[in-house]
Amino acid sequence: MPSQPVTVSSSNHLQSDIKDYSLPNASWSPVMVGLYNEFMEKTVDGSWTRLPGCWRSVQFLKEKDLARIAKAVPVQMIEDARLFLRIAEMERLGFEYVIFHNDSEKKCVCLFQPGPLLEGLPGIVHGGALGTMIDTTLFMTAYNSANAVFTGTMTITFKSPVILGSVVRLEAKVTGAEGRKVFLFCEAQSSDRTTLFAEASAIFFQMK
């Protein structure tokens, strides 16, 4: 895992099922790359970890959790599945994002650059696309911090529209736990943290 600042280069030709999508590519804006480098510097002392950007959920789920899921879902369906966030084969068009996790603080920060396929109103990111990234950031926080897998409830309050191609900084944190329930909160802000796009609260459940 690189720990020094990077420059943007063209995408490699690795197979889609082994490519790490959380590495900068030619579509990332200077702002996106700059924030990425800031967080990569924080990984040097081990306080933060960059989570790999996977094509399939089986690539980041723990083996014991996969075994439990396989009891309810046909194996072939799992093998053929791909993450909704990887619907676009080409870079720049859909969900460009990277997530960093801080285990001691039980939180994640996601850097998200929405592409033109995520449009709602002209030039504006669809609320469902932003909601998807909020849910994803909450899930990765819940799973990596408290081994919680299932979204129980999620309430999102939208505050301001997001412009396509801009950079959104999402920060989610575990706020409490009760039995199998894990409580979380998330904010979606502009890259400079001066504009609040949305805030959300959620309850996730750990597997039995």
Rank of each mutant, 00 (worst) to 15 (best):
F39Y: 14
S201Q: 14
S27G: 10
E105G: 07
V44E: 13
C110M: 15
L184D: 01
H101W: 07
P74W: 03
A188K: 05
F139N: 08
K107H: 09
Q189R: 15
N144Q: 10
R82F: 13
S47W: 05
A67C: 08
G131I: 02
K173A: 11
Q59I: 06
L51G: 03
L130M: 00
K106F: 07
S27Y: 00
K64W: 15
A146N: 04
K107D: 05
T175L: 03
D65I: 09
E91V: 10
Q76S: 11
I69C: 03
M77Y: 12
G128Q: 02
K181G: 01
K107M: 09
D17E: 15
M207W: 12
S145D: 05
F95I: 00
S57F: 15
G128V: 06
T195L: 00
S201E: 15
Y36M: 07
L184G: 03
G34A: 15
E38M: 06
T136R: 09
I99N: 06
E178W: 07
S191H: 11
V98N: 03
L66I: 11
E79A: 13
D192V: 01
T7R: 13
L164V: 04
E63R: 10
F183E: 08
M32E: 08
L170G: 00
R86T: 04
I156K: 06
S11C: 11
R193W: 06
T151V: 04
